[in-house]
Design a binder for these strands. Structure first.
Lengths: 124, 124
DNA sequence: TTGTTATATGATAATTTGTTCATATGTACA
DNA sequence: TGTACATATGAACAAATTATCATATAACAA
């Protein structure tokens, strides 16, 4: 039976296709469209940097202004602000203006959830 | 970070510190150590690429061998194999050898959870 | 043994990323 | 009005990343 599955049709098709055809079709059918994966990658990419993770981690505890974060992280205001901008671009943080300051907070529950599960994974 | 122009009347404290001192201390106290954030970033980084996301997405439906994935994704075997290697490096996928083939699967429930929440976020 | 298939991996070039520096914008207060 | 503070942003450069190509390894078949 295994041998039968191994036959090669001699076309420009990989012989392997034949072996796991059902699995391939099943998995293929569940795939989202390309744009969704690209959008998803862009979003996850923002979690892939220690500075941004620290920012989100801080905001999961307390709303903070840029200078607070700059101070805690011992990083320039510019660097923090740039990162906040990218985080906003994918809807991971939001802010309200309060006088001269901008009070940042996490955009929604997904951010907290992703952080928590990620931490679980690495600490396990 | 303390920058020259933020100094207050000769004191070595940023004027901003004073404003949100409590918030700063509270958030600071909850921070994990630097290595954890680095490790976490390395892990999330692997979710930040469409190819790897598709691979994990496929594996969340069916265990598959390298050639299956290569076929579905219409990518070279080499590219897929390289990505699988990096996914293994952070314990996101695992595999068992079956003859000439390697049957890959997701490493643990966190991977599925992260994918799901991420998708929720971008589709919302 | 030799040939074929499945997978892994080193090196490379093109692209992307993250911080810094310099500067701009905007708010408040004297 | 002018000055200081808080934040935003454009340019630029070093560092990291990803797919490709070429090749290696490893299992099986003939």
């Amino acid at each position: 039976m295994l041998e039968k599955n191994y036959y090669n049709v001699g076309e420009d098709t990989c012989s392997i296709n034949v072996i796991h055809e059902k699995a391939i079709n099943k998995a293929k059918k569940e795939m989202l469209n390309d744009e969704t994966y690209m959008e998803l990658a862009e979003t996850f990419k923002l979690f892939g940097n220690p500075t941004r993770l620290k920012i989100m981690s801080l905001l999961s505890v307390e709303d903070l202004c840029v200078c607070d974060m700059s101070e805690i992280l011992d990083m320039s205001q510019s660097a923090v602000s740039h990162q906040l901008r990218t985080l906003r671009s994918k809807n991971l943080v939001k802010y309200v203006k309060e006088g001269k300051q901008a009070r940042y907070s996490l955009a929604d529950r997904h951010v907290t959830q992703l952080l928590q599960i990620g931490i679980e994974h690495v600490l396990e």
